[in-house]
């Protein structure tokens, strides 16, 4: 089960409403490499992990991703909550406003709705851990692009925090993969020192 704690993982601040940035940040809410994808990818894959530590890594990182989903939701909420329909339309969020008003929905920066086909789940831990390492890198790249697009220092502090968590998660998944290979006594070498 899960327990909700009534505070964000990290406080979110933005300097000003910014609909253009909100449109871009939507991809980390409901895009292919966003936090929703990440969280439910890991929390679904964890059932077939072969050993206690691997189950823990998938569960704990998946749980942290849900906290990141809340942070990204808060960013978008703060950026768009006071916008007029005309301002939404001008920023390319007219379609979003028609269907969801000022509230959140799972779609990417171009408005493409979230789909379960963004994810994969196997009972082979080597396969899923490679997918997860790739997922963390894709999310890191996305946050770097968002930071390039934003000139709001406060927003960028939060985006940088989320970017850094992708780096840490990548590291933990890599260690998990190494230990799973040890567990199975694999001798494959996939990468050099």
């Amino acid at each position: 089960m899960w327990v909700y704690v009534k505070h964000l993982e990290r406080q979110v601040e933005v300097s000003r409403p910014d609909l253009q940035m909100a449109k871009y940040v939507f991809t980390q809410y409901g895009g292919p490499d966003g936090e929703f994808s990440a969280g439910w990818r890991y929390l679904t894959q964890m059932f077939a992990m072969p050993t206690g530590f691997a189950k823990a890594v998938l569960n704990d990182i998946g749980t942290e991703e849900l906290a990141h989903l809340e942070i990204v939701g808060t960013i978008i909420h703060l950026l768009i909550q006071d916008a007029s329909p005309e301002e939404m339309e001008k920023a390319g969020l007219g379609d979003h406003f028609a269907q969801h008003g000022h509230n959140l929905w799972f779609h990417d920066a171009a408005g493409v709705p979230w789909t379960a086909t963004y994810l994969q789940s196997f009972d082979d831990p080597v396969t899923v851990l490679h997918e997860n390492m790739a997922a963390e890198q894709k999310a890191r790249s996305t946050y770097e692009n968002l930071i390039c697009l934003s000139n709001d220092k406060k927003l960028n502090e939060t985006l940088s925090f989320l970017r850094q968590r992708e780096v840490v998660h990548f590291q933990r998944f890599g260690e998990t993969l190494d230990r799973v290979h040890e567990l199975y006594n694999h001798r494959h070498v996939f990468y050099g020192p």
């Binding site: 704690v5 505070h7 964000l8 993982e9 990290r10 406080q11 530590f53 823990a56 890594v57 704990d60 990182i61 942290e64 840490v168 998660h169 933990r172 260690e175 998990t176 230990r179």
Partner: peptide
């Protein structure tokens, strides 16, 4: 106080993940 909670919560989260692979 909320900032303190954020900070200790973050340390605990980070060390949880670290200990998962460095038990």
């Amino acid at each position: 106080l909320l900032t303190q909670i954020h900070q200790w919560h973050f340390v605990a989260t980070e060390l949880t993940l670290f200990l998962d692979t460095h038990w």
